[in-house]
Computed example of a mutant assay.
Amino acid sequence: MRILIRTSKTAIWARRIGRIAIPLVILPVGMHHLGLIDSPSFFTVAILALIVSALAFLVGLLALIRLWFSGDQGWGKALSGLFLGLICLAPFAYYGYYAWRYPPVTDIATVPRGELPLLFLPDTAKMPPPKLITPDEQARIFPNATTRTYPLDVVSLFGVVERLVENEGWDIHLNVPPGPDGTPGRINARITTIPGWREEAVFRVAPIANGAKVDMRSASINAPHDFGSNGSRIARFMVNLDNEVTTLLRDNPNVNQPTAAEDEEPAPSVEGEGN
Rank of each mutant, 00 (worst) to 15 (best):
V270W: 01
L241W: 11
I208F: 09
V270D: 06
N175D: 15
T147Q: 10
I208H: 01
M127L: 11
V202D: 11
E200P: 05
F42A: 05
R101T: 07
F43D: 10
A109R: 01
W13L: 10
F42R: 00
A139Y: 01
G231A: 06
V59G: 06
T247F: 06
S39P: 01
I208T: 11
H32A: 07
V160G: 02
T146N: 13
P180W: 14
A139E: 14
A93C: 07
F83C: 10
Y98V: 01
L241Q: 09
D136L: 07
R163A: 15
M1T: 12
E199D: 15
G272D: 04
I65A: 10
W13V: 08
G81H: 02
G231D: 08
A235Q: 06
R140G: 09
I194F: 15
P122M: 06
F57T: 07
G74K: 00
I26A: 13
P91F: 12
T44H: 11
V25M: 03
L249W: 09
W75I: 10
G169Y: 00
R2A: 06
P122V: 08
W170T: 02
L86N: 06
D242P: 00
S8H: 03
I3C: 04
K213R: 14
P130M: 02
T247N: 07
N254R: 12
R140E: 15
P91K: 05
P28Q: 00
R217A: 15
P195C: 09
G85S: 03
E199S: 14
A219M: 11
T246F: 09
W197E: 08
A235F: 01
V205N: 02
F92G: 06
P40M: 00
W197I: 06
S53K: 01
L89T: 09
L152I: 14
R190C: 09
F203T: 04
F142E: 03
A139L: 10
S220M: 04
R217K: 15
E199I: 07
T193Y: 07
I191T: 11
F227K: 00
S218Y: 04
A267L: 12
R163C: 03
T259N: 12
A223M: 05
F227T: 01
F142Q: 04
E168M: 06
H33F: 13
V154R: 03
L241R: 08
L119T: 12
L62H: 13
T192G: 07
A145L: 04
V202W: 03
A267H: 04
H33Y: 13
V155T: 12
Y102G: 01
G35S: 03
A49T: 10
K126I: 00
D123Q: 09
E168F: 05
N167H: 12
P151E: 08
A261S: 13
R148I: 13
I172V: 15
L132Y: 06
F237Q: 01
T146C: 09
G211V: 05
D181E: 15
P135F: 07
V52H: 02
L119K: 10
D171L: 05
I234C: 09
M238C: 05
T10D: 14
P177H: 02
Q73N: 14
G76K: 06
Q257V: 08
T259C: 04
V59P: 10
L118D: 10
Q73T: 13
T7M: 09
P130G: 07
R190L: 15
D251L: 08
P184Y: 10
V205P: 01
G272I: 09
G74Y: 00
H225M: 05
N254H: 08
E265V: 02
M127D: 03
R66C: 05
R19E: 15
V160I: 15
R186C: 03
